[in-house]
Amino acid sequence: MSLAIVTGAARGIGQAIAARLAEAGHALLLVDLDERVHDTAAELGGSGVRADIADPADVARIVAAVQERGSAPRVLVNNAGITRDSLLRSMDEAAFRAVVRVNLGGTHALTEVIAPLLVDHGAVVNISSRAQLGNVGQFNYGIAKGGVIGLTRAHALAFAPRLRVNAVAPGFVESEMTLAMPAEVRQRVVDAIPLEVPGQPLDIAEAVEWLASDAASYVTGQVLYSCGGRSFA
């Protein structure tokens, strides 16, 4: 059974990705700063590592956990991320650095150490965001998720032909956070989506699973927007 590593997997989109990859036959190594990662891993029959991907010592622990499994991984999904939204004029440097360090620095750090361990014809799937096309209050997040696309392309070239590296850019996806938004704000966001509904975590998981699979064997360095058409509407 091939091994898939998923970060930010304790809940939400990461949890859905892990579940979809398990259904597709992958063994799982789940990573999250949230200790519920152990519960999610137990539910899905995998193992969990509580770790901060922005901390080099924790990245080393993740590598050790992968090596303990005794078989080379086939898939790495870099999903872990945080937000600290505010207009730029009121955004402080700590909020900027934190978002860039976790979303972009963490993705870079983990890819650099895990990619050499992946089996030939393995796949890396990074989670970017439609927000990198421009969003109010997300200068930090936009830079980080745009940076993830830069990494995706450069790593796709660097690791070809041995590995494929792609990204999924979710739009507005239903989550604990978005369900807590004021109803009128949420409705305004949904009204701007051509398909007129928010995305579900499973929508993102399906896109990731396809990019990680042999069905996408001729696809590398690409960004798949799963956003209901919002990327151009």
Binding site: L87, L133, G134, I143, I149, R153, A154
Partner: peptide, 24 residues
């Protein structure tokens, strides 16, 4: 995306940052 990975990350990050600034 044709540069070294971290150079590409910085450059494409700034492309996205320019879009976010313009939007905001």
């Amino acid at each position: 995306g044709r540069g070294a990975p971290l150079d590409a990350a910085v450059a494409v990050g700034l492309v996205a940052g320019g879009r976010c600034l313009a939007f905001e």
